[in-house]
Amino acid sequence: MKTLICIVCPRGCHLNVDEENDYKVTGHHCEKGEIYGRNELLHPVRVVTSTVKVKSNIHPRCPVKTDQSIPKENIFPAMRLLDSVLLTPPIKRGDVVVDDVAGSGACFVVTRDLDT
């Protein structure tokens, strides 16, 4: 039995996951928590957020995120992919910056609009 704190929402439920009983989750208060508890032991994933360079005098950086969770072990390789990115405004929320991040199928997308 493994005890986890759920990170799906700020409620932070205390989960118990039973590895010997097909990863049965208890202590969750929603369906997402049940999925999280199971995944966290089998193949943990995270959304990665960071920034990339922008050609702009006003906004030197633009925030980005992976549009879906990626495997935890891919976080640092994913971060390195952003080092060579340089965006030119105008930029729109949702613009794709990096495709298929570290083979995960997720994309890095822009999270704010920048006109200048």
């Binding site: 929402c9 700020p10 959304v47 929320r93």
Partner: peptide, 18 residues
């Protein structure tokens, strides 16, 4: 720039700028 905003209000996980 991290995510986790909006779960209650929008029912989805957004970053601060979003």
């Amino acid at each position: 720039i991290h995510n986790g905003f909006g779960l209650h209000y929008f029912g989805e996980e957004l970053t601060g700028p979003e």
